[in-house]
Amino acid sequence: MASPDLSDLDAFVAVARARSFRGAATLRGVSASSLSEALRRLEARLGVRLLNRTTRSVTPTEAGERLIERLTPALGEIAGALDAVSSVRDSATGTLRLDVPSIVARHILPPIACRFLAAHPGITLEVTANDTFIDVLAAGFDAGIRYEERLERDMIAVPIGPRIQRFVIAAAPAYLATRGRPLHPRDLLEHACIRHRFPSGRIVSWEFERDGETIRITPDGPLVATTIDLELAAAIAGLGVMCIFEEVVRPALDSGALVPVMEDWWQSFSGPFLYYPSRTHMPAPLRAFVDFIKTDRGR
Rank of each mutant, 00 (worst) to 15 (best):
I145F: 01
V158F: 03
P111G: 11
T218I: 14
D90K: 11
P159D: 02
I203V: 12
L67F: 09
P199W: 09
S7T: 10
Y275P: 06
T26V: 08
Y275H: 12
I217G: 14
E246D: 11
I228Y: 10
H281M: 10
H120R: 09
G256W: 13
L258E: 03
S102Y: 01
L230R: 15
L230C: 11
V224Y: 01
F208N: 02
A143P: 10
A32W: 12
R166N: 06
A32C: 04
R216S: 14
V58C: 12
V15M: 13
E148F: 12
L82N: 04
E209G: 06
L151M: 10
P101L: 07
P185R: 06
M242Q: 04
V127N: 02
P272E: 14
E148L: 14
L286H: 14
I68F: 02
I112A: 07
V158K: 01
A118V: 15
G23T: 10
F198Q: 15
P285E: 01
L253V: 02
F12S: 03
R146V: 05
D229C: 02
V88A: 06
L151N: 05
G161L: 02
D142G: 02
F245A: 05
R115F: 08
H120I: 10
T132E: 12
V168D: 00
R186K: 14
N130D: 01
R53N: 13
V249W: 00
A2Q: 03
I108Q: 09
L96F: 04
P277L: 13
F208S: 00
R19K: 11
W266N: 05
N130L: 00
A63F: 09
T95N: 08
S270K: 12
